[in-house]
């Protein structure tokens, strides 16, 4: 019993329940006439789509900036990169990398400004990040209308100005990664390229955390006073982490689009931070501690639930409650993390 108690304490009740829930969904799937192959490949596809956006939270958690509810800012950088690429007329798989490249300067500038802002509001990062994310999305809503885009694939046909709400990436970088080395067995589809790319980005972040700067960043998050006493410039580390986080958000949304098929503008990025935050927390991260492992586990569990619940629940109780379950699970997880009394904190 004691051993069991320890496991429960270590994993935490919500995580355990979610894990068991997903597990039971997979068990129940065959009885509900849900094809495991399709479910699994759906889960993997969504895992790959969302993984990098979950990963984008890691640097800021490491540097003690908390959960990056301001992720939409990074997503906006990605959207700018994507739209500019299409505007420039780049096509084919290579346009994916052009998009990432085009998004980079925006991510750097946004991240720098956002980082500096967060440095001035230490202790209130999360609330302010949320609203910075929201206001920037709302601001960009105006910009999508006003910016002088002209590519006919993106602009509203009848008015000739302002971008459409959803823009197809077909002919540009649709499935540029997903189809690379993809494996198809019956209904099972493995987006090898996307998963490899995600693995590569995870490796980059992992590697970064093993450099001098990365080490300093982790120390800043673990104990800022200690880091300062060791001669680390806390504000600089935090800014770097925010820039990195923003850039990863930009890359994340572009990878998402290549699999999803569409660029979603206007209010599209509005609530995108919440599922990512929930995923990393489900993966075992806390407000001030996160690892790549947390990202992988969390993204898989969370996306697994999102794919499995509608199909399984639907066929068992004839009620599609997946949306409600998503809301309750994701926000419940965030709530749980926020109310956990931090040990050793003052």
């Amino acid at each position: 019993m004691k051993y069991l108690d320890r496991i429960v304490e270590k994993t935490g009740w919500p995580r355990l329940i979610i894990g068991l829930f997903l597990f039971s969904l997979f068990i129940a799937a065959p009885f509900a006439q849900v094809k495991i192959g399709t479910s699994l490949s759906d889960t993997l596809i969504r895992f790959g789509m969302n993984g990098i956006m979950v990963l984008a939270l890691v640097p800021m958690i490491h540097s003690g900036c908390g959960l990056n509810f301001g992720l939409p800012l990074g997503i906006i950088a990605g959207l700018l990169g994507a739209t500019i690429t299409i505007e420039l007329g780049a096509t084919g798989a290579a346009s994916l990398f052009i998009a990432i490249l085009a998004a980079t300067p925006f991510a750097l500038v946004f991240g720098w400004g956002y980082g500096n802002l967060l440095n001035r509001v230490k202790g209130n990062e999360m609330m302010i990040a949320t609203y910075v994310g929201f206001s920037s999305v709302a601001f960009m809503c105006m910009m999508w209308l006003l910016l002088p885009y002209s590519s006919p694939t993106m602009v509203w046909g009848y008015e000739g100005v302002g971008l459409r709400t959803t823009i197809s990436v077909e002919g540009f970088y649709l499935h540029a990664l997903s189809n690379f080395l993809a494996v198809r067995i019956g209904t099972f589809f493995l987006p090898t390229g996307m998963l490899l790319f995600m693995g590569f980005v995870c490796f980059l972040v992992w590697a970064f955390l093993h450099t001098k700067t990365g080490t300093a960043m982790t120390a800043v998050g673990s104990n800022p006073v200690f880091a300062r006493a060791s001669g680390v410039n806390i504000d600089r580390m935090r800014t770097i982490s925010v820039i990195l986080s923003t850039w990863l958000g930009a890359v994340g949304i572009i990878v998402y689009q290549q699999s999803f098929g569409f660029i979603q503008l206007y209010m599209g990025p509005f609530y995108m931070a919440f599922p990512a935050v929930a995923a990393i927390l489900i993966g075992g991260a806390s407000v001030n501690k996160a690892s790549i492992m947390n990202v992988l586990i969390g993204a898989f569990l969370f996306q697994g639930i999102l794919t499995m619940t509608p199909s399984v629940m639907n066929s068992i109780i004839q009620m599609d409650m997946s949306e409600v379950i998503r809301i309750i699970v994701s926000n419940g997880m965030i709530l749980y993390a926020l109310t956990r009394v931090k040990k050793g904190a003052h």
Partner: peptide, 8 residues
């Protein structure tokens, strides 16, 4: 966040 949660 509680507001979102209770919305669910």
């Amino acid at each position: 966040i509680l507001g979102f949660f209770m919305n669910g």
